[in-house]
Design a protein around this nucleic acid. Structure first.
Lengths: 107, 107
DNA sequence: TAAAAATACTCCATAGGTATTTTAT
DNA sequence: ATAAAATACCTATGGAGTATTTTTA
């Protein structure tokens, strides 16, 4: 797909926490999953979004720029989801519409 | 992922065209690809979003409801993408940030 | 019968998990 | 040594393609 709100949300959360471990926990995914997401996003954009060492995480200017453009979208995304659901999370129903039935999920 | 702007865009385009063939053409994907997208979205939501026969396509109330909530998000998504790029399209760079390098894509 | 959606494959990327390794303090 | 990110490996799903079949006006 072209535009993935979940990826932007991942970057936004990482920017808030400045820690892959904490951001992953907050997003409800494992740390390597978040690492991989960010790496894929960087590869697809051909740009580094985050500078990391094992002891520090910093959002690059390109990352900041992307986040500033993405912010309004993430805000607007919220009413599309069930009450209180985060844009990105590992399990649970996807999107929202009246009564979602079973929600199969990736493993 | 949880929320896919591309899927919402697919539904929105289908709602405008009321034809999988035309909507797919407009989105730059093959007709079966669009069909599959919509089907997956319906399966994940556990709700029918579109009533189709080979001769007519109609968006269900659940589909309309979803679209009405998704509209603002799709509008807000536009500044995240390169100038004039649709939210969903088969090829080309993903997201946007300064100078995307090579853009590998699904096949 | 003709046009449109669905189906049936195939291929590759995304995405998540656990276990482990590397790295920097 | 320890804490944090990266890597390696696995599996499942998403998403696109072409070719074909089903459906119905």
């Amino acid at each position: 797909m072209r535009l993935d709100a979940g990826q932007l949300q991942a970057l936004a959360t990482l920017a808030e926490e400045l820690s892959f471990t904490r951001a992953a926990r907050r997003l409800g995914v494992a740390q390597p999953a978040l690492s991989a997401r960010i790496r894929r996003m960087e590869r697809r954009l051909g740009q580094q979004l985050v500078e990391r060492s094992t002891r520090s995480v910093r959002i690059t200017p390109a990352g900041q720029d992307l986040l500033s453009r993405a912010g309004p979208m993430l805000t607007a995304a919220e009413p599309v989801l069930p009450e209180g659901e985060p844009v990105l999370s590992a399990a649970g129903p996807v999107l929202s519409a009246a009564e979602p039935a079973e929600a199969p999920r990736g493993g």
